[in-house]
């Protein structure tokens, strides 16, 4: 019986998968009726196959988020903040944009501007010059 089992073992596997021809299937079934060891083996194989089929589907983890963009460094941030100031300075230094007393007499009513605009500008200009001087000294 042992040699018959060994010979039939590949067929037993094919039998459990339904891959056998009708004649081979009858041969295997005949053997299974007589051999309890092979019956047990076939039952075990079915059990293994079923356990594999019943493995649960696992929940996929959420997709990983891309790393956050790094904060801009201090120097670029300062440069960005200085842009409007620089624009004002450039505009101020260009003579085409600098208001004159004649502009004031045309556009600004003297009652509202208690102090002439050019005096504010003068103060600011001096302040900027002072800052520049200190910066150079520093």
């Amino acid at each position: 019986m042992k040699s018959a089992c060994n010979l039939l073992e590949p067929l037993l596997h094919a039998y459990t998968e339904g891959w056998l021809s009708a004649s081979d299937r009858l041969r295997v079934e005949q053997h299974l009726r007589e051999c309890s060891a092979c019956r047990q083996k076939v039952a075990d194989w079915y059990a293994v196959a079923n356990a594999l089929r019943e493995l649960p589907t696992l929940p996929a983890p959420m997709p990983r988020l891309p790393a956050p963009e790094p904060e801009p460094r201090l120097v670029p941030r300062l440069a960005l903040a200085m842009c409007p100031v620089m624009a004002l300075l450039i505009a101020w230094h260009s003579s085409a944009w600098r208001p004159t007393l004649s502009h004031l007499s045309t556009y600004a009513p003297p009652r509202i501007i208690t102090k002439p605009l050019h005096s504010y500008a003068h103060t600011m200009h001096r302040w900027i010059a002072e800052v520049q001087r200190r910066w150079k000294a520093f």
Partner: peptide, 23 residues
């Protein structure tokens, strides 16, 4: 996505490797 991840996990045996493979 779950089926792809499950298959990858069962072949590779590690969650992080399976995640990479699924991606």
């Amino acid at each position: 996505r779950d089926r792809v991840f499950s298959l990858a996990f069962r072949i590779l045996g590690e969650a992080s490797a399976a995640e990479d493979a699924a991606q």
